[in-house]
Amino acid sequence: MWSNEPRTLPDWIEDAYQILVAGTPDQQPNLSHEQAQDLLLAAEEFPAEPADAEYAIERLLDSGWLYAVDGELRITDPER
């Protein structure tokens, strides 16, 4: 059965989103894939494994919290 409720992500992936929002200037809410990974791996509250950073970015992309344009990642809604 389909539901109109938004899908939720695991807390650690939502935390990754907040890390990316906090690490992105308001005037330019986009970053390269590498910059996003570096921000996540530098955060103390995020697992220090590159595979975890990649997985979180992919889940954020799949869920529409991030989107990719011309090789850059953009934050969909920094007010979330």
Rank of each mutant, 00 (worst) to 15 (best):
M1P: 12
M1N: 12
S3C: 10
S3T: 13
N4R: 05
E5F: 11
E5L: 13
P6Y: 01
R7F: 13
R7L: 15
L9R: 14
L9M: 01
P10H: 07
D11R: 03
D11S: 06
W12A: 04
E14K: 14
D15T: 15
D15M: 14
A16I: 07
Y17K: 07
Y17I: 03
Y17R: 09
Q18M: 08
Q18W: 15
V21Y: 06
A22F: 11
G23V: 08
G23W: 09
G23E: 15
T24L: 11
T24P: 00
T24I: 03
T24M: 08
T24Y: 04
D26S: 11
D26E: 12
Q28T: 11
P29D: 14
P29C: 08
P29T: 13
N30I: 15
N30D: 13
L31R: 00
L31C: 05
S32G: 12
H33R: 15
E34G: 06
E34L: 12
L39W: 09
L39F: 09
L40F: 11
A42F: 02
E44H: 12
E45S: 09
F46I: 02
F46T: 00
P47A: 14
E49Q: 11
P50R: 00
A51T: 07
A51G: 00
A51H: 05
A51P: 00
E54Y: 04
E54H: 08
E54L: 09
Y55S: 03
Y55C: 03
A56G: 04
I57W: 00
I57G: 00
E58D: 04
L60Q: 07
L60M: 06
D62F: 10
D62I: 03
D62C: 10
S63E: 13
S63P: 01
S63T: 14
G64T: 12
G64D: 03
W65Q: 09
W65R: 15
W65K: 14
L66E: 08
L66V: 12
L66F: 04
Y67N: 02
Y67L: 02
A68H: 00
V69R: 04
V69Y: 00
D70A: 13
D70F: 06
D70I: 06
D70N: 09
G71Y: 02
G71S: 10
E72T: 00
E72Q: 08
L73I: 05
L73P: 05
R74H: 13
R74D: 02
I75F: 06
T76Y: 11
T76M: 08
T76D: 10
D77M: 03
D77N: 13
D77V: 00
P78H: 03
P78F: 03
P78Q: 13
E79R: 03
E79G: 06
E79L: 06
R80Y: 12
R80P: 06
